[in-house]
């Protein structure tokens, strides 16, 4: 079923009646953490999977990789089969969930109309903005007047030491 080709490559022949192509592709994809897999069809009933390992390894390690691939192939066929047989059940339950009302229904927001502030709120906001802008202006003035900062806590790394 498997053939070790060289220093870091192993080829595995897979019967597609036994293992559907989707399962073969999926298993090969999972091996991409250690190998570049190549899948070639040999007629309609067989595929040849070549795992080109990303690091050069000894023959013993290649044999282990081959065994691991075959084991994973079995596991993936089982998982594929379970999910395939149950697909209608899964979709039914998810559809039911989507149709239920939200567990904690968020109140519909009124969008941009909510952003309109009352005159009083606008005045309050203007006051806040004025206050902040005054503080920013004072800070800028302080910087211009080289405000004292004896502990140097306001300095950035670059101000204190220059760029690295």
């Amino acid at each position: 079923m498997a053939k070790i080709n060289g220093q870091s490559e192993v080829t595995i022949a897979v019967g597609l009646r036994e293992f559907p192509m989707e399962v073969v592709r999926f298993t090969a994809y999972l091996f991409m953490d250690r190998a570049d897999p190549l899948i070639a069809l040999e007629g309609k009933r067989r595929a040849r999977v070549t795992l080109r390992l990303r690091a050069a390894v000894a023959g013993k390690r290649l044999a282990l990789e081959k065994a691991a691939f075959l084991k994973e192939l079995e596991a993936q066929r089982f998982q594929w089969d379970v999910l395939r047989k149950n697909r209608s059940i899964q979709e039914f339950i998810v559809r039911q969930a989507l149709q239920q009302p939200p567990a904690a229904a968020p109140a519909p927001e009124s969008g941009n109309s909510d952003l309109e502030l009352s005159q009083e709120e606008e005045r309050e906001l203007d006051r806040l903005i004025a206050e902040v802008e005054e503080t920013l202006a004072k800070e800028a003035k302080g910087r211009a007047g080289k405000k004292k900062d004896p502990l140097g806590i306001r300095k950035t790394w670059e101000e204190a030491h220059g760029r690295a």
């Binding site: 149950n86 059940i89 039914f92 339950i93 998810v94 039911q96 969930a97 239920q100 939200p102 567990a103 904690a104 968020p106």
Partner: peptide, 24 residues
């Protein structure tokens, strides 16, 4: 257990688990 599924209960579980999908 495939023969004894509580569809309504599992749908509720799925909804709670993924509640963030409806909230923004």
């Amino acid at each position: 257990i495939g023969t004894h599924l509580d569809f309504q209960g599992l749908a509720r579980d799925f909804r709670i688990k993924n509640n963030f999908l409806w909230s923004g």
